[in-house]
Simulated scan of single mutants.
Amino acid sequence: MVNAFSFACTACGKCCNSPPAMSLPELFRHRDRFIGCLAIGRVPRRRIGERVRVGRHEAVLDEADIAAFESIADTLLHRAGDTFSIMTQGYDYPSLARCPALADDGRCAIHLNGKPVTCEVVPLDPLVPDTLQHLVLAGRNQSASYLGADCIQEGERADAALMTAEGEIKDANARNALARRRRALEKEREVWGRAVFESLRKDLFDSPAALARIPPGGFLTISIVPALLAVASTSARCRQLCLDYIDSQLALIDRSIKQALLRRRLDDRPVTQELRGFAHAYQRAQTLLGTPLPAMEVESGTPSSLSPIEAYLSGADR
């Protein structure tokens, strides 16, 4: 079979070496476990005839490939000359080299209790067209994160699910997870992404000097507060949900910094500084959101009475 890769997760935890990308509702659900941030990445524009090579696997992008990339960009990403992703993301000390959801036995503590959709998508990439996911698997099969895990194997295997072959995603669970993650990203873009993009346009996206802070193939992490302010402005209930989230995050950041100080690692210092910046941003937002607007009163109600954004934030629209 052409470009066939199989995948069998052994729950070894090797790829769970950092907090995952998560939707805002997922961060709200796990507010006491994951520190939230915004991750801003620069997504390369693809061209017809461009060669994409991973090891011995290669694709020459044709018109259909470019159309697929453009469709993803139009629905999930943001354009300002270049193309950018803006996602909510878990944040932690890289020196820990583990996801905060990993239990002491190396297993996921939230596998059956709200595991992020991103984790179900692994090892695929929602920002890559389905026809090219075999290149994603080829790359990850060679990456250090998966080294020794033996979960991604080339070809069809009896003891693993056939993930990709002949330009298609063959595994139904993988197709479903990809579709759900893409829907979540589209929803994020609609609910708060556009507003955050516009709020950052002048100081970041229209500034070559500021954009230089985004490393090639990497991300710029900033406070999640711009996303919170965008959703908090829609109703009193959303405002209160954001305030509750901020309270939990301030406590979690405080615990994380105290633990880092006990570790006494020099490479933790820049992260501690950034976390303190997150805390200051939260405190400023707390002051801003803690002043109620005259026309806003927190209403009680059942999930059926929630507005679409309230339902989204609370997870009632899942």
Rank of each mutant, 00 (worst) to 15 (best):
A11V: 01
C15V: 00
S18A: 14
S18L: 14
P20S: 11
M22P: 00
E26G: 06
D32C: 08
R42V: 03
R47M: 11
G49C: 11
E58T: 08
A59K: 05
A59M: 09
D62C: 10
E63R: 14
D65I: 04
S71D: 14
H78G: 02
T83A: 13
S85Q: 06
G90L: 03
D92F: 07
S95F: 14
L96T: 02
A97G: 10
A109V: 04
V121C: 09
V122A: 09
V136P: 11
R140E: 00
Q142M: 13
S143H: 07
A144S: 08
A144M: 06
A144K: 03
G148C: 08
G148E: 03
D150T: 02
G155I: 03
A158N: 05
L162M: 10
E166P: 02
K170Q: 13
R189M: 04
V191H: 03
W192Y: 15
E198D: 08
L200A: 01
D206G: 09
R213P: 05
P226M: 06
A232G: 13
A236M: 11
A236P: 06
L241T: 09
D244Q: 09
I246A: 08
S248P: 04
A251F: 03
I253T: 04
I257Y: 14
A260K: 09
R264L: 05
G277Y: 15
F278M: 08
Q283E: 15
R284K: 07
T287H: 15
L288P: 01
P294Q: 04
V298P: 05
P303V: 02
P303Q: 03
P303A: 02
A311W: 05
A311N: 07
D317G: 03
R318F: 11
